[in-house]
């Protein structure tokens, strides 16, 4: 549905996004994760046709954004980071206005679609109110409503839950999740749990470059509070890997550094729910291998996120 190839965007000398490539399949919810200034908004703005890429190709539903911008825009709903709405308009009038722009010409259809998004976003109580008088949470919902009107195939949501209270956050997340399936959704955030809750695939971006693309399941393993155990074991590497891998609760065993003799260091990823150090030690002993070291490293979500991000800084 969305194809991005070697997207690069410069603002003068500043490189906002560099060589970013990814694809999003139809019906997928893709999370865009990164610290402030990572290039999330820039990538999204290129996708929406707000400005063209410096280099690279962007295709939405098979249409190139620079060659057929109107075709792309017709299929797109966009919620910007800071939703700037017309403060002197009423919610209802504003949604009719956006609906007409998106090509809903016939009155009954327009009315029906407006009613639909009003209900979906819970705006029924404030329909007749001036947008300027609404709270931040309601404005955000109006922003979401204007993105949804006209049933666009692709939704691009830039930090959709910022500024909402916890109850609203839960509601909006559920709404987004419900919208996936039929619609292709890209949403950006810097809140890690949000990505894990909503998204089917996650892109971590920092300083304009993609650091990681993975499913939340895999990232969960890497990013959630997990247990990594470092062991130094003496024995044939293959046998050690098989032995350790056979222990219940082990996800992955990697051979790391070669120490003196037959001693090698192994990194073992385990399920986060329980501590299996005892089982690991037993397995080593039962198979007549030598145990030299056994320790666990714990990393919190934020620490790993920071690590990923700072590592990338290191490269650049």
């Amino acid at each position: 549905m969305i194809e991005i190839q070697n997207l690069t965007k410069h603002y003068g000398h500043i490189k906002a996004v560099e060589n970013v490539s990814f694809t999003v399949n139809k019906g997928e919810i893709l999370g865009f994760l990164g610290p402030n200034g990572a290039g999330k908004t820039t990538t999204m703005r290129v996708l929406t046709g707000f400005f063209p890429p410096t280099e690279g190709k962007v295709k939405v539903a098979g249409f190139d954004i620079t060659e057929k911008p109107l075709e792309v825009k017709k299929r797109l709903g966009y919620l910007p980071e800071n939703v700037a709405l017309y403060m002197d308009m009423r919610v209802n009038d504003y949604l009719h206005f956006v609906g007409r722009i998106k090509g809903l010409k016939r009155k009954p259809l327009l009315k029906q679609k407006v009613n639909q998004v009003v209900e979906l976003c819970g705006l029924g109580d404030v329909r007749k109110r001036l947008i300027g008088k609404l709270s931040k949470g309601y404005r955000q919902r109006v922003g979401l409503a204007q993105a949804l009107i006209g049933d666009p195939e692709v939704l691009i949501l830039d930090e959709p839950t910022v500024g909402l209270d916890p109850k609203q956050i839960v509601e909006i997340r559920k709404l987004i999740k419900d919208l996936g399936g039929e619609r292709t959704i890209i949403l950006s955030t810097h809140i890690l749990p949000e990505v894990q809750m909503i998204c089917e695939r996650v892109i971590i971006i920092n300083e304009g470059k993609i650091v990681a693309i993975d499913t939340p399941e895999n990232l969960n393993r890497q990013l959630s509070k997990k247990l990594t155990i470092i062991m130094e074991v003496e024995g044939e590497p293959q046998k050690v890997v098989n032995t350790l891998g056979g222990v219940d609760g082990v996800i992955d065993v990697k051979q790391k550094v070669k120490k003196k003799g037959k001693i090698r260091q192994y990194e073992i990823q385990t399920v986060p729910e329980r501590d299996i150090r005892k089982e690991l030690a037993q397995a080593v002993l039962e198979n007549q291998l030598g145990l030299y070291e056994l320790r666990s490293i714990e990393m919190s979500l934020e620490e790993i996120f920071l690590k990923l991000v700072t590592q990338e800084e290191h490269h650049a």
Binding site: L70, K73, L85, I101
Partner: peptide
């Protein structure tokens, strides 16, 4: 100034 132009330019309008 308000930033409304961002949305305006992403609508299917020339």
């Amino acid at each position: 100034k308000s930033g409304a132009i961002e949305l305006l330019f992403t609508y299917p309008l020339k």
